[in-house]
Design a protein around this nucleic acid. Sequence first.
DNA 1: TTGAAAGCGGTACCAC
DNA 2: GTGGTACCGCTTTCAA
Lengths: 340, 340
Amino acid sequence: MFTPQVVKAPTSADVALAAGVSRATVSFVLNDKPNSRVSDDTRHRVLEAARLLGYTPNTAARSLASGEAVAGLLVASSAADHGATVARALDALLARTVDDGIDALRHADTATTGAEAGQLWAKLRPEAVLAESARCDGEATEVLRLAGVRALIVHGTTAVDYAPSLVIPQRPFGGLAVEHLAALGHEHIVYLAPATPGPAAAERLAGARETAELLGVRLDVTHAAASARTLRDWAHGLRYDAHAPTAIAASDDGLAMAAIRALADAGLRAPADLSVVGADDHPGAADFLPRLSTITFDADALAGTLLDAFARMRAGERVELLEAPPVRLVARESSAAPAR
Amino acid sequence: MFTPQVVKAPTSADVALAAGVSRATVSFVLNDKPNSRVSDDTRHRVLEAARLLGYTPNTAARSLASGEAVAGLLVASSAADHGATVARALDALLARTVDDGIDALRHADTATTGAEAGQLWAKLRPEAVLAESARCDGEATEVLRLAGVRALIVHGTTAVDYAPSLVIPQRPFGGLAVEHLAALGHEHIVYLAPATPGPAAAERLAGARETAELLGVRLDVTHAAASARTLRDWAHGLRYDAHAPTAIAASDDGLAMAAIRALADAGLRAPADLSVVGADDHPGAADFLPRLSTITFDADALAGTLLDAFARMRAGERVELLEAPPVRLVARESSAAPAR
DNA sequence: TTGAAAGCGGTACCAC
DNA sequence: GTGGTACCGCTTTCAA
């Protein structure tokens, strides 16, 4: 049974002693240095000694001595604030780093911002950092730069001027939803936003507004918690409203599902009575009843873009602006032409 | 615009020089040592110099000198393999660590296992480690112990004898689903498992089998990808089967939703024609049409248990066995008594 | 082919 | 109150 060690961990000196060689030799062997001329016999003895002692190199010491980073990539993004599509992209990124032999770490702290956050990340002396622009400001960037971070990408809905930006516009999510519904013939749409919209949700709403104005369709806005109560009242109101909208654009698929659900409780059906389109291609959206039309972009592609950009920055190339893949409509059953 | 630094990062020596004091004094001031009698003037000069230089302490160096860990908690669990409820618990754990001032990091690598994985984690010299038993075997545990890890918890469906275990039995997920359906009066249930069940899914199925046997209800098993095709054929078969089951227990909510969807396509409705119960209380399950009955446990409670256990282990207390909160049924609309 | 020794950036003990 | 200094574990010349 595991029980914490009281004596100190074996060091390379212990290995050297056990193998009857010097610490330098141990270092050579264990790191498999290209032009280290160590005899096969010595090498073997060192390896064996290391195995026997259960030796594990100390990253801190190695980093200190060699100057190499403790972590390959530090991801300091809360994901939750940027919609499910971005969250998927981050997961994909992490998954791909291991294939590339980059040891990526994800920071649990998602609250700290500004210079303080910069310090938090810089302390680890990572080679690369991915952060959200909302938390990584100019000061934080400077801290990271001074700490020797080689590559930094901040992401947000717009570009920043102090660091390479990955722009993930949220407006098109709202815009494309409205565009899609308008194209189907809907002239009165209601936009369903979260009760307390985060930055991403606010942008999506703004995008919907812009597009609605542009296309000359009427857009009402309702804020609702995903929880049923609010939505039920709201749907019920719709039921008896002669001038009710014919379509709903929801800020995300969760809201869209909840809306459809509330509609059903009020005796309204999608898409027969109202069309509904969501966002983020929630797992399950494709199997929802009705199958949910949604707006998303290719998360894997974004992961690839990021990985590529980091590779380029590491190679010394300068990166300024990265763009998320264009959002696209996944038209399924929940949106259709309005009933006449 | 961010551009990597060429000169080296400022060190505490630079700060000392700038402030006209010694490195020792800088260390005292920056760490706000309790009984360090540093004059207010000196303290101020040091702080100012640090700010001006954009100084960030080097965790590696600090860890090396003080012996303290580089990371407070290292989470090395893929989450994906343990069902959505466990994934939620991990997220909750990470969220709570920051409140407790523990700097937790999550490892991106989810593939490495055994001693090799142990090395991977131990290199960071974390204070505590949370790993899945499938990847952290006896050897890995020993490596971690030797590396000075103070607290280790491995989690899996059963306890292991080499380390403190968090047991998260998956069988009750299947068992309780069957029990619920049987209690409603269903005597012929079909269990819907993923096409390629992971360890958790396999356990859930086994649990369903056990309980079915115990209660004397018939349990058929169907493996299906969540994708529609297989399910559609399957549902269609059900449609014209005089001896068709009257209920479905799905391995997870995603599958349950897909099943209901496929059923609907085949002209069958839940719960009127078949009852359905899922698992993991998927966000959206409550708003599904019909609202999905599901099996889950309190993820926040599990996070609390873990945090508490880590605290105890850090305090030197010995922890052997931790148990996940009991699974519970969330009865909603999708499951009901069979039609006569 | 191997060993000796000088750091890397901090911490902490012990003088002054 | 403040500075000197011996480590922490490892890498990396440079000699032997």
